[in-house]
Deep mutational scan, measured.
Amino acid sequence: SDPSEDRAPESARVGNIPSSTSALKVPQLKVAESAQGPAAAHTTDTAGYNAMEESVSREKPELTASTERVNKRMSMVVSGLTPEEFMLVYKFARKHHITLTNLITEETTHVVMKTDAEFVCERTLKYFLGIAGGKWVVSYFWVTQSIKERKMLNEHDFEVRGDVVNGRNHQGPKRARESQDRKIFRGLEICCYGPFTNMPTDQLEWMVQLCGASVVKELSSFTLGTGVHPIVVVQPDAWTEDNGFHAIGQMCEAPVVTREWVLDSVALYQCQELDTYLIPQIPHSHY
């Protein structure tokens, strides 16, 4: 159930021909089969995070001529859309010479989310990475209204306002976009420790780096000194050995919190207090 199309920051360009055919990675995205229709094609874990990302398996898109002007500035990904909605975005992107990729990268400028009429969405990996990267996180209605009015409308009017977990109007995407000089995790050293489900560890690490944190791979690698705040992030329900995560405190002095601390902080683009996310640790033995 991992969102495989989000696994690594590679891009698939639509609308320009790469210098070599080997560089072309066409979105071959799968549809989750469901008797209840597209709305039930998501699996949500206890964290309220949509693990099964969206989309559609299609034939290789038709490439435009390399001489045609390509908008190098805009690059989009989509999240939560049905196959039909994805194809509408594809046509919109081609019309406006926008790069459409299946994986979010540093070059991505827009994340197009499936939302309700009030621009509230589910939480997906692309949603988190879009906010963390200060990108435009907009409703699919931006595409449909632009098509209806036959011009590209202003993104401000379609920015995602909230999500089904953290609140319907928290304005996290807007706050992140306007606060890239004040990253929420700066001054923190974060170790993403142990197993994680539904989200590859490297993507979680990239997320906290985008928010200004330094990533530490091992508990023994924390910088011990003033001005640096170490934090260990774990996902308790992913551990097979009972309560192993309670013993992390015996290996390092850092506070240990659940992954929800990261996800909530990123969604709201406000660093949350650790208290409600802390995992009790077995104290050091004193002999």
Score class of each variant (00 low, 15 high):
1 S>N: 05
2 D>V: 05
2 D>A: 07
4 S>E: 04
5 E>R: 13
5 E>Q: 07
6 D>N: 13
7 R>Y: 04
8 A>C: 05
8 A>L: 07
8 A>S: 06
11 S>K: 02
11 S>L: 09
12 A>T: 04
12 A>S: 07
12 A>L: 11
16 N>D: 07
19 S>H: 09
20 S>R: 08
21 T>Q: 09
21 T>L: 07
26 V>C: 03
26 V>Y: 04
26 V>H: 05
28 Q>C: 11
28 Q>P: 07
30 K>E: 03
33 E>G: 09
33 E>S: 03
36 Q>F: 07
36 Q>Y: 15
36 Q>P: 14
36 Q>C: 09
39 A>P: 12
42 H>L: 11
45 D>F: 09
47 A>L: 09
49 Y>E: 07
50 N>F: 13
50 N>W: 09
50 N>M: 04
53 E>F: 09
54 E>R: 07
55 S>P: 07
60 K>R: 10
60 K>A: 04
66 S>L: 06
69 R>T: 14
71 N>F: 08
73 R>I: 01
74 M>H: 10
75 S>P: 01
76 M>T: 03
77 V>G: 04
79 S>A: 01
80 G>S: 07
81 L>Q: 08
82 T>I: 13
89 V>T: 09
90 Y>F: 08
91 K>M: 08
91 K>H: 09
93 A>P: 01
93 A>L: 07
93 A>G: 04
98 I>Q: 03
98 I>C: 07
98 I>F: 08
100 L>T: 07
102 N>R: 07
106 E>S: 06
107 E>N: 01
107 E>P: 07
108 T>F: 02
110 H>P: 01
112 V>F: 00
117 A>I: 15
117 A>K: 11
118 E>D: 03
119 F>A: 05
119 F>L: 14
120 V>H: 04
121 C>T: 03
121 C>K: 00
123 R>M: 02
123 R>L: 01
124 T>Y: 00
125 L>I: 03
126 K>R: 01
127 Y>R: 00
127 Y>Q: 00
133 G>S: 09
134 G>T: 09
134 G>P: 01
135 K>H: 15
136 W>G: 00
138 V>W: 00
141 F>I: 02
141 F>L: 05
148 K>F: 04
148 K>Y: 03
148 K>R: 15
152 M>T: 00
152 M>S: 03
152 M>Q: 08
160 V>F: 00
161 R>V: 15
162 G>V: 00
162 G>L: 00
163 D>L: 00
163 D>G: 01
164 V>P: 05
165 V>P: 01
167 G>F: 01
168 R>A: 07
170 H>S: 03
170 H>D: 02
170 H>F: 00
171 Q>L: 07
171 Q>V: 08
178 E>A: 14
180 Q>S: 14
181 D>S: 09
182 R>P: 13
183 K>T: 04
183 K>V: 14
184 I>Q: 01
185 F>L: 11
185 F>T: 00
186 R>Q: 09
186 R>V: 14
187 G>Y: 10
188 L>P: 00
189 E>I: 13
191 C>N: 08
191 C>F: 12
191 C>G: 09
191 C>A: 13
192 C>M: 02
192 C>P: 00
192 C>R: 01
193 Y>V: 15
194 G>S: 07
194 G>R: 07
196 F>Q: 10
197 T>M: 12
198 N>H: 13
198 N>P: 08
198 N>V: 10
204 L>S: 02
206 W>R: 08
208 V>A: 13
209 Q>M: 12
210 L>E: 14
212 G>L: 02
218 E>R: 14
218 E>G: 13
223 T>Q: 14
228 V>T: 08
233 V>E: 01
237 D>R: 02
241 E>K: 12
243 N>P: 03
243 N>M: 14
245 F>A: 12
246 H>W: 11
248 I>T: 09
249 G>S: 12
250 Q>A: 13
251 M>H: 11
252 C>W: 05
254 A>T: 15
255 P>C: 08
255 P>L: 04
256 V>E: 00
257 V>D: 01
258 T>F: 09
259 R>P: 04
262 V>G: 02
262 V>E: 00
262 V>L: 03
263 L>R: 01
269 Y>T: 11
277 Y>L: 01
280 P>S: 11
281 Q>A: 11
281 Q>C: 05
281 Q>T: 12
282 I>S: 12
282 I>R: 11
284 H>P: 09
285 S>Q: 08
285 S>R: 11
285 S>Y: 02
286 H>L: 11
287 Y>L: 08
